[in-house]
């Protein structure tokens, strides 16, 4: 998976989300595909902005205000891996 340096959230109506117990469903309107994701993916998506691109480190900074994320270097790497995967699925915009 190609890791890009910065990412943006898709426009607001690109995805319909539904939280079930233990899982969040993301219905991607452009492709008609339903993705099933678990924490921390919904939290990463929430931390992204539509217009202001953010790096994995930016997202980590934002999330660490609300969550205990443990070792910073590991958490940034994990966030980067998730963002690259989400960009590959078309669920976020990579720049």
């Amino acid at each position: 998976m190609t890791r890009l340096s910065r990412y943006c959230r898709l426009e607001r109506d690109a995805i319909a989300a539904c939280a079930l117990d233990g899982m969040t469903l993301l219905y991607h309107r452009a492709s008609g595909q339903t993705h099933m994701v678990i924490s921390p993916v919904p939290e990463i998506l929430d931390a992204l902005d539509e217009t202001r691109p953010a790096s994995p480190a930016d997202i980590h900074r934002h999330m660490s205000q609300r969550y205990e994320l443990g070792d910073a270097a590991e958490a940034v790497a994990l966030i980067g891996a998730h963002l690259a995967e989400l960009a590959g699925l078309g669920l976020v915009r990579g720049l």
Binding site: A16, C18, L20, G22, M23, Y27, G32, T34, M36
Partner: peptide, 29 residues
């Protein structure tokens, strides 16, 4: 049976979930 497992099993049990697009997603959720 938890909601996540129910959702997965019902998408497998539906022959037209994908074809119905968002209407199917809304109805099933």
């Amino acid at each position: 049976v938890g909601q996540a497992e129910v959702f997965m099993r019902l998408t497998q049990a539906s022959t037209n979930y994908v074809a119905l697009g968002e209407a199917g997603f809304r109805a099933l959720t």
